[in-house]
Amino acid sequence: MKRVAVPAALGVALMVLPLAGLLQHAPWSNLWTELASDQGLAALRLSLVCSLGALGVALVLGVPLAWVLARVPFPGRALVRALVTLPMVLPPVVGGVGLLGVFGRRGFLGRHFGSWPGFPLPFTTRGVVLAQAFVAMPFLVVAAEAGLRQLDARYEDAAATLGAGPWRRFRTVTLPLVAPSLAAGAALCWARALGEFGATITFAGSLPGRTRTLPTAIYADLQTRPDAAVALSVVLLGMSLAVLVALRGRWLGAR
């Protein structure tokens, strides 16, 4: 027992001590002043807008993708599943380089569509959303696919025998049943988008108010205004905790 307890306790310390260090360094007396600075508020607003945008993209594209992966057998499905979950383990900065290779001015799409509406993407707020969606969408896809797989298809079959069309079946039977997994996936996806740094700074740069999200602002401020950096870090920590609490039924509640 003792042999396991020591490394386990060290493991907890490794996870928890940095958070304690952050809170201990937080400029509590003027936390609000640091946060309410123009740059802090701009980064906070931008991060909220972009991470929610990325979540929107992930829902619109990721739920149908999860459906196909869970329900439609086709050759190469395992390969497609592996490919679309790759961003979960890929270093985000590599994703940023790849996005530039596609949508950059010399990228194979950006080169041709650079003047189309919605383009260009690099160094724009849209680019931040895209970079965050690239990194975060797999979290939604994996959770939604697992939910769909666990679903007993007989409920849908029953609805079909009662005359419900495919869309009505999805809306009234499937969706309510997978809602918990979908919500958990969405929360993880949003949290991942909120914390995205590597792909964002590589693909979208770092312009206050436009592409400098909270993590990039923290990185920039750490060198010149460490108090502001720690204050913003505390905000991100708080948001992450909020996600965890929202998921408590799934993880914290489990024994």
């Binding site: 160094f123 700074i201 979208a204 740069g205 770092s206 312009l207 592409t211 400098r212 920039a220």
Partner: peptide, 8 residues
């Protein structure tokens, strides 16, 4: 100048 990015 209105830069597109302020790099670190």
């Amino acid at each position: 100048v209105r830069p597109i990015s302020l790099e670190l």
